[in-house]
Computed example of a mutant assay.
Amino acid sequence: MRACFSFIGVFILLLITGCNKDGLSLNRPNDTPGNIAAVATFNLIPGSTSVVGRLGAASLYTLTGSFDFGRYAAYKNFLPGTNKLEVESFFDNKERKQLVQNISLTAGRAYSLFLYEDKEVGSLLTEDNIILPREGYAKVRFVHMGKSLSPLSLYIGNEDKPLFANIAFKGVSDFKEISTHNTGPLEFKAASGSNTVLLTIEPQNLISREIYSVLVIGDLESNLPNEKLQAKIVIHSR
């Protein structure tokens, strides 16, 4: 039952999530117990209708419905150490693609696992700085998984200076704190210096002390709804 303890208290976590045979499914990254690692998973494989996977002896995620392209699975606890990652992705044309590799986790740390495709299905594991931001601020990072797309910079509204600059394909920025009063649209431009806005996310009402990932996903060379280039924002506590 040690896996059922957390930094915010066992009773709150039991009420929200409970325990199961695969460990404790976390709703907030700061609930990570000190003797376990937490992993959030992003399915960024264009065209995939579902992904199933295991990390060590446990299911990779706990979700209702299919884990299709663009979906996010919130932090879930796993045993630290070297774990075997096994992933199988499914597509409308009945094709299946598999990924098998080992990943290493450290106790007391939180991670994001990004599943993507670049000729073959691959994964990128990042360690997440999940310390909550100050009151009146949100924490944001930029994830570039736009296949066939050059490096990008992310701007807020009409700011001259990018919030994140020159992020290449398969690049993940560090988190930055921004004021929740920054309500302009999020604009993605080529890092080469062009003023052309390639993608836009409408103005967001950022929540104080929340953590976000802003993502560019899909394939520049496809117009299919479940493959095309798009931008989205993910709230880590949901």
Rank of each mutant, 00 (worst) to 15 (best):
T126W: 01
E202I: 01
Y75F: 15
I12K: 15
L79C: 01
S153R: 09
Y137E: 12
N166G: 02
D68I: 02
S59N: 15
L154V: 04
V140D: 06
R134Y: 10
Y72R: 06
I156N: 13
P46M: 06
L152S: 03
N158A: 09
H181G: 02
F188R: 03
I156G: 01
K94H: 11
I12F: 11
C4H: 05
T64D: 10
N226D: 14
A191Y: 07
A168D: 14
E88C: 06
P203N: 07
L60W: 05
K170N: 12
N77E: 12
P80L: 10
A74I: 09
I217Y: 08
A165Q: 14
F78D: 05
E227G: 00
F78I: 04
V216D: 10
E117S: 13
S213L: 04
A231W: 08
K147G: 00
F169G: 00
S50Q: 15
F142G: 01
L206I: 01
L132S: 05
N30W: 15
S222A: 10
C4A: 13
D22T: 07
N166W: 05
E187C: 12
L85K: 08
V100M: 10
K176W: 07
L24I: 08
K119Y: 06
S222V: 02
S173W: 09
L124K: 14
L113N: 02
G23I: 11
K94E: 13
P225T: 02
L229N: 03
Y72A: 02
N226G: 01
L15W: 13
R71I: 02
N93G: 05
G136F: 08
K161N: 11
S48N: 05
L152E: 06
N27Q: 12
L206Y: 15
R28Y: 12
E227A: 06
A231E: 08
P162L: 11
T106C: 00
P203Q: 07
R209Y: 00
G122N: 04
S222T: 04
L186M: 14
L220H: 04
N182C: 02
F175P: 02
A74W: 00
A107F: 03
D68A: 15
Y116T: 02
V10Q: 14
I167W: 03
S213A: 09
P185A: 04
T106S: 13
L99C: 04
L163W: 11
A58E: 14
T82G: 01
S208R: 05
P151H: 04
K189C: 01
S89C: 14
G18W: 08
N35D: 13
G122W: 09
F5W: 10
G157A: 05
T180V: 15
I36E: 14
N102H: 13
